[in-house]
């Protein structure tokens, strides 16, 4: 392609180009072109290498779920299942009570995601569109909560949940996560991108804050909301510590704890554990594939004005 480019410049269809592009320019253009191609190639090699590092454990997990325990233990290891066995999946589903845990995870995750979207939307709207005393200070406090690791608040949360009588219940599992500083921050940035004139126009048209939020601000902040939904889904789905301490029996245990139990009960059946991991990860993977565009758009929204 570089040669073609040089040829097209050296044999111009319109003679006037000869007057414009000197020999030196031609060499410089070709050099620049080669350099750009080399830089793109290096970038692709680097990204492919990174992707391989990230995808390798996932690949091995899937492969191991299709091997027998003996094949998994074999050295050198199997990188391709020559005779895949699917039995581990039914064993994990039945013996590991995956259907119950999956349902619990879905219920808790839906509660948390819905809760976060609703609370974050209201908080973000207030920070973006309303004027009230100590607005800035309150927002900084909201942001400061992002710096506090969850583990620090575990004991307080547990005491609160127990006092409320929500120990070993869906409410106890979801309540501490139904509001988030990150969500409020993300949506506030999206709402700040909504032109002030729209709010004024809506006020003249007879729309109060609530109706403006629902009918105008929220639809316009959809990409950021989708990003928040995906993030809170990931967080809620992968929770381990909190579900473990706030539940006492398997009726309310979630998938991640189920996986731990599966591993403990099928020590000699490593492939079953791997199959359980694949089942647990499947909803996440599907979600990411569906929402990857919104996820990226939501995170970059507001970064560039225009």
């Amino acid at each position: 392609m570089a040669t073609e480019f040089i040829e097209s410049v050296s044999k111009p269809a319109v003679p006037i180009i000869d007057l414009v592009v000197s020999e030196e320019d031609r060499v410089a253009i070709a050099k620049r072109h080669r350099r750009r191609r080399a830089s793109i190639a290096i970038r692709y090699v680097f990204l492919t290498f990174l992707a391989a590092i990230i995808l390798f454990p996932i690949y091995i997990t899937i492969v191991n779920s299709l091997l027998t325990p003996l094949q998994i233990a074999a050295r050198p290891p199997f990188f391709f299942p020559t005779k895949p066995t699917w039995g581990a999946y039914s064993d994990a589903w039945n013996a590991g009570h995956m259907s119950l845990y999956l349902m619990n995870s879905v219920i808790v995750t839906v509660l948390i995601v819905t809760g976060q979207i609703v609370t974050a939307t209201c908080a973000a709207y207030a920070f973006a569109f309303l004027e009230f005393p100590l607005k800035r200070t309150l927002f900084i406090i909201f942001l400061a909560t992002l710096m506090v690791p969850f583990e620090v608040t575990v004991i307080t949360n547990l005491t609160t949940v127990v006092n409320l009588g929500w120990y070993n219940s869906y409410a106890g599992l979801a309540a501490p996560f139904m509001a988030t500083g990150f969500g409020a921050f993300l949506l506030r940035q999206a709402f700040l991108g909504v032109p002030r004139d729209l709010r004024d126009a809506a006020a003249l048209d007879g729309y109060g804050h609530w109706r403006f939020m629902v009918r105008v601000a929220v639809p316009l902040a959809r990409p950021a909301m989708a990003a928040l939904a995906v993030f809170s889904f990931l967080g809620a789905w992968n929770q381990y510590l909190w579900p473990l301490i706030v539940t006492k029996d398997s009726r309310y245990r979630t998938l991640q704890i189920g996986l731990r139990q599966l591993r403990a009960t099928s020590l000699d059946q490593v492939n079953v554990t791997f199959a359980g991991v694949v089942i647990a990860a499947l909803p996440l993977i599907i979600l990411l594939v569906i929402f990857q565009k919104q996820l990226v758009r939501g995170l970059t929204a507001g970064a560039v004005k225009g």
Binding site: P195, D197, L198, D200, A201, A203, L204, Y207
Partner: peptide
């Protein structure tokens, strides 16, 4: 309230939804 003043406004930015 603005909505009760029986006025309509056209903005420089058009302010279309």
């Amino acid at each position: 309230e603005p909505k009760d003043r029986d006025i309509a406004m056209v903005f420089q930015s058009y302010a279309l939804y």
